[in-house]
């Protein structure tokens, strides 16, 4: 009983969460404008978009995966592997397009490995993807070692220098296009609805004929492909392919998604929340950089926001917990299941 009502509270909390994100966004913009005369400019849009681009793109497949109650911590390593494979193939004269295709294929294979272990074998996704996190990065290292591949066609390297149009950086533009697609798929298709059902109650989804395993497998494959694509973008943007590309970004991606209101338990949240979260984080980084707060220091605020995003919807719960100290002596029997 209590878990049901808590679910409802959480649902309402999250509806409010997107509104809260809009308020935070406005606050960030006001703060930026107040603190720096250069904030409200086209360079903000361009560099903000360039900086957050990779995390933003990878946040989309992560959103779907977390919606089903799983997680993919291997995204940033897949970025690195995509980058390395792209560079390695390019170096071996496959041509740019050939190198891209090979990198995307490797992304699909890596994603399929995750998907197989999680969806078919039934292993916990957190452990599997910590394993592939290390493994993918390792393979990238085996391929490229300390070397750096460069010399990509200058026309393609434009994506790291010039905007696609209207001061919009290429990676961010890709993100927006992809986000629009994801928004439609998640919120307007049968597939999207099945993701929520899987996240809230996998068994009931299975009893309703939803192909749970196939769906999860597919999500991991798509995640692999998109992250490998992000690796290609990284190579072109930086004009060099290195195996360390994107190291450590996986936790940023998870944090952006959770801050966007996607529940870590699955089944709650929206793509628009994730888009807002991406924009807020991107703008915050620019705002702080303009007032000389280093990106490392910004982590405090970022972490704080993440914490806020899980604490605020649970405030009622906290109050109950504190008030219910006495009652705690007799916990309800129905509180079965995991944490």
């Amino acid at each position: 009983m209590s878990s049901e009502s808590r679910g409802r509270v959480r649902a309402r909390g999250l509806v409010r969460w997107e509104s809260a994100l809009v308020v935070i966004l406005i606050a960030v913009v006001l703060f930026g404008v107040a603190e720096s005369s250069t904030f409200w400019s086209t360079t903000t849009i361009f560099f903000g978009g360039l900086d957050i681009g990779q995390v933003a793109i990878m946040a989309l497949p992560m959103t779907m995966i977390i919606l089903t109650g799983e997680i993919d911590l291997s995204v940033a390593s897949m970025l690195g592997l995509g980058c390395a494979v792209f560079g390695y193939a390019f170096e071996h004269h496959t041509g740019v397009v050939g190198a891209m295709l090979i990198a995307l294929a490797v992304g699909a294979i890596g994603g399929a490995l995750n998907g197989f272990l999680v969806a078919r074998v039934g292993l916990p996704s957190i452990a599997v993807t910590i394993g592939t996190l290390t493994m993918f990065r390792g393979i990238a290292e085996i391929l490229l070692g300390q070397s750096e591949v460069s010399g990509f066609p200058p026309s393609l390297e434009q994506i790291g220098i010039a905007p696609i149009f209207l001061h919009l950086a290429y990676p961010f533009f890709f993100f927006l296009v992809l986000a629009a697609i994801y928004g439609v798929v998640v919120h307007r298709t049968a597939f999207g609805r099945s993701l929520y059902a899987i996240g809230l109650n996998t068994e009931a989804a299975f009893f309703a004929g939803i192909r749970v395993r196939r769906t999860k497998f597919l999500l991991y494959v798509v995640s692999g492909v998109i992250c490998a694509a992000t690796g290609i973008i990284y190579s072109l943007q930086a004009a060099s392919a290195i195996y360390t590309a994107g190291t450590g970004l996986e936790l940023n991606v998870v944090a952006v998604v959770l801050f966007g209101g996607i529940s870590i338990f699955g089944g709650r949240g929206s793509v628009i929340g994730v888009v807002l979260s991406v924009i807020i984080v991107g703008l915050t980084e620019v705002a702080f950089t303009t007032i000389n707060i280093s990106s490392q220091e910004q982590q405090v605020i970022f972490g704080g926001l993440l914490l806020l995003s899980v604490v605020v919807p649970n405030v009622g719960e906290v109050r109950n917990r504190i008030r219910g100290r006495v009652r705690r002596a007799a916990p309800p029997v129905s509180a079965g299941g995991g944490l």
Partner: peptide
């Protein structure tokens, strides 16, 4: 106290610290 999964709390703590 908040019963937020420790994965999220410690991820946030990772950044804050």
């Amino acid at each position: 106290l908040i019963r937020v999964p420790s994965l999220v709390v410690t991820l946030a703590a990772l950044y804050v610290i």
